[in-house]
Simulated assay, not measured.
Amino acid sequence: MPNWNRINKYIEKAWKKDNPYKHLKELRESFPNDGHLAFNLGKAAMEEGKLDKAFSYFKEAEEQYPKSEFKKKARNKIKEVSNLLEKESNIKKSSDDVLYIVSCTKTKIWDEEPDAPRFVPAKDAYRGSSFSSAKKKLGNKGDAKWVVLSARYGFIEPEHPISNYDVKFGDLNSGPVSETTLKQQARNQKRFEENKPLSDFHEIYVLGNKVYKRKTKDAFEGTDATIMEW
């Protein structure tokens, strides 16, 4: 039996198993120079969502296929995966340009748990219904970047520790953060793991009342950011 025919039988069996990608990879160790096996590995990698791997396998298939008609099939797959990788990259770039701002709430953990520690991360400290709703929405957005707009602290990351306070933007006697400070935070402070300035975000969605929306618009005035309601 010709070698290629035997390999094709192995490939067919691999596709019938629970994890074709795994079994095809194991088969590749025995037949590293077979173009059709590389092509099938590319298809299996696509099904697994491993687009980078799929691209590599289709490139190998193009090089290893002996006939031009099969090389053309591999090139078509290379083009298809390239388009998918480009779309994936654009989506990532787009999401990296989006920032969500959630307003603080009067209700905090200390209202419900008087013995809570003096300092608690903002994401756990605010207990208002609007804040809880926002966290659920953000949880469905994967790696969405978000900050809290606090009347006392200004723009803070979810992990930023806060203590109990009763400060309101509408009550100057309570000592709210100044508009000057908010502008400086928006322009100069770098946040998140990549140390990205808040002013580098191009789309900003605000969840809060009209006061918080106005404070955000004023803070980002003069930047390239578009402020929208969330």
Score class of each variant (00 low, 15 high):
G42R: 00
N40C: 07
M228S: 14
E203S: 12
R187K: 15
Q185P: 05
N83R: 13
P158D: 08
E88K: 13
L138Y: 02
K79D: 13
S129T: 15
F39R: 00
D52I: 14
R127W: 03
I78W: 00
Y21W: 13
S174Y: 03
K196S: 02
P158N: 11
W146I: 04
D124H: 08
Y153E: 04
R187M: 12
Q185L: 01
K135I: 12
F155I: 01
D218T: 15
K50E: 11
N173G: 08
K135N: 11
K145W: 01
T216K: 05
L207S: 06
I204Q: 01
D97Y: 05
I101S: 01
S94C: 09
N40E: 11
K168L: 06
D96P: 06
G222P: 08
K183C: 07
K59D: 11
Y205S: 12
S82R: 08
R127V: 09
V147G: 00
A74Q: 02
V206T: 06
D115T: 08
N76C: 10
G139I: 02
E112W: 07
H36F: 10
G175L: 09
K13G: 06
L27G: 03
Y205W: 12
S94M: 06
F119C: 06
N209M: 11
V206I: 10
D200T: 05
H160L: 05
S82T: 11
F58Q: 03
W15I: 09
N3H: 12
Y10N: 10
R118M: 08
S199F: 03
T105S: 15
K72Y: 05
S82E: 15
N33Q: 08
K215Y: 04
S82N: 10
F31M: 02
P117L: 02
K106L: 15
P197E: 09
K215C: 02
G154I: 01
S89R: 14
E194M: 07
K137W: 12
K213R: 12
P197G: 02
S30D: 13
K141L: 14
K196P: 03
L172T: 09
A125I: 00
A61I: 03
W110S: 03
G42S: 06
